[in-house]
Nucleic acid binder design. Structure first.
Length: 492
RNA sequence: GCAGCUGUAGCUCAGUUGGUUAGAGCGCCUGACUGUGGAUCAGGAGGUCGGUGGUUCGAGUCCACCCAGCUGUACCA
């Protein structure tokens, strides 16, 4: 077919966003930003594109970028990539502007990041993160503060205390654990990865699933088989001990301490955890907002010490199987090696990101999000096409007074104009035909009030004759009357 | 990537053991209403049944392959 039309469509994992979602995102961003500002962080923004090597994302032993990142070659053949998080670009920025920045350097930024991975519910290939970092401070106080800020942010977003938890662990504890089951040396590199990955799946697969993955392997619902790490029973028991149902954070520390006796790395990790815990506790956040959880793994690359994860703990009502799981909505950790890739001196850093898109998807699914679009503009209708100049003058007066307003620019008759205004979520329309003009008046119809009245009216004739929520005011009072309607409906 | 399931109108779906011009609800457009949203009523537009090939007198229906979507799993720096 030569006259075949192009089919409008989006690649998977990408979404269009309408006014209601945009408004909801904006409200979220404002709340997050307010918390970060209060903690003394300042904004900085970097571009969406970086050199691939600056992101550190070449495949090992190959000159091709990792498939998980969107990459392309510049005119000069250099590889460029879309950022896949906001941390790596920040490290590049700090390294590049090192001498000009105050240290420790505390900054935040929001922006879209891109990952070429399989999308799912609340998982997109383009999504927004809100990130905050402290660069140039090695003290655990920086990490403790990040955790407390994460908790404050959740509450600022309207998530009640007890409906979220900030979990803290330390990569050194995990390394120590692997040491204690003798998974050391380069030969065991792959096994170590397999063990950590298995642990990371605890919330999804449960203890049994993780146990299978640590041992022989596991068959999923579709019958597909995943090979396990092949550990012996004693080693499996040691690894699973971190999932023990020990209620208090102090006890968790004690519980795991015994298993790490032989590992110096593990002991150091425990010390760091204890330090964070005492700082968090001193500020009162140890009441369940921030907890120690030795099972938190997080991504596998650049974290060097403490790692954090923000999790929603909502009980999803209707609790059958079909309900999606919204686990982690944010996380982060200490990445002491990332900036020093560019610098001669060591530059410790720690930070965390909130997955704004995912959190929004979760909140909206759970009905915890006010997802109403903002009110639309006041629409001035066109009854007499010869008098467009007059109508435009009404519009100009409203705008001059700071009120969103527009002239109906379509070609429809009255009914179409009302439908248009309705769809635009307009608070009211302005009408002036020859009758009103002679009396020096305009009709104002409150669409929101009118919609409410519609329920009680049976016939169309009655509806039209009663003209619900409609009234006349002198032309001179136009702005004032519209203001009243806006105020009544809580317009911002 | 691997596995399972599903592809019929913009959306949600019906379509008997293969049998004439492929249906419904919702939505959309127009009108009833020379100047009023909703409701109602009447009319209208919109589909080469995901694609290609095959079996058959005949395929939305059966078969093969491909494509897309969903779910699980792997990977996710």
């Amino acid at each position: 077919m030569s006259d075949q039309k192009l089919k409008p469509r989006l690649p998977r994992g990408l979404v269009d966003r309408g006014p209601a979602e945009i408004a909801a995102t904006r409200r979220m961003l404002e709340k997050i930003q307010a918390v970060y500002e209060r903690y003394g962080f300042e904004p900085v923004e970097t571009p969406a594109i970086e050199f691939t090597d600056a992101l550190g994302k070449f495949l090992p032993d190959q000159d091709r970028p990792n498939e998980g990142v969107f990459s392309f070659q510049d005119d000069d053949e250099q590889w460029l990539s879309l950022r896949y998080d906001l941390t790596a670009p920040l490290a590049r920025y700090v390294a590049e502007n090192f001498d000009a920045l105050p240290k420790p350097y505390r900054s935040y930024r929001a922006g879209y990041v891109f990952r070429n991975e399989k999308p799912g519910p609340g998982r997109f290939r383009q999504f927004m993160q809100f990130d905050a970092d402290t660069v140039g401070s090695a003290t655990m106080a920086a990490d403790a503060e990040i955790c407390m800020m994460a908790a404050d942010t959740m509450e600022a977003l309207g998530i009640p205390r007890g409906s979220y938890v900030v979990k803290v662990n330390n990569r050194k504890v995990l390394d120590g654990l692997l040491e204690s089951i003798k998974l050391t040396g380069p030969d065991n590199e792959l096994k170590r990865l397999t063990v950590l990955r298995a642990m990371d799946k605890f919330d999804r697969l449960g203890r049994g699933g993780v146990q299978q993955l640590l041992g022989e392997g596991r068959k999923d619902e579709s019958g597909d088989f995943t090979r396990g790490a092949g550990l012996n029973a004693a080693a499996i028991e040691t690894v699973l001990s971190v999932f023990a149902n020990v209620p208090a954070s102090e006890n968790k520390l004690a519980h795991i301490q015994a298993r790490l006796k032989d590992s110096e790395t593990g002991q150091r990790g425990l010390q760091e955890l204890e330090e964070i815990w005492s700082l968090v506790n001193a500020s009162g956040y140890g009441d369940g907002r921030v907890v120690i959880d030795p099972s938190v793994v997080r991504g596998l690359e650049y974290y060097t010490g403490p790692v954090y994860e923000i999790e929603l703990t909502f009980q999803v009502q209707g609790g059958q199987d079909g309900t999606p799981r919204f686990g982690s909505v944010g996380g982060g950790g200490r990445y002491d090696g990332l900036v020093s890739r560019f610098r001669p001196e060591p530059v410790p850093a720690t930070g965390f990101s909130i997955g704004v898109s995912r959190l929004q998807a979760a909140l909206s699914y759970l009905g915890k999000l006010e997802s109403t679009a903002d009110l639309g503009p006041v629409v001035v209708t066109v009854l007499d096409r010869a008098r467009i100049a007059d109508y435009q003058r009404f519009v100009a007066r409203l705008r001059a007074d700071g009120i969103r307003a527009e002239l109906y620019l379509g070609s429809g008759k009255m009914a179409a104009q009302f439908k248009y205004a309705d769809r635009r979520n307009s608070p009211c329309v302005i009408i002036q035909g020859s009758d009103e003009q002679q009396r020096g008046e305009v009709q104002i119809k409150d669409l929101i009030e009118g919609a409410r009245a519609a329920g009680a009216i049976a016939s169309n004739q009655q509806w039209r004759e009663s003209r619900p929520a409609q009234f006349a005011v002198p032309e001179a009072s136009l702005v004032e009357a519209v203001r009243e309607i806006l105020a009544r409906h809580g317009a911002r």
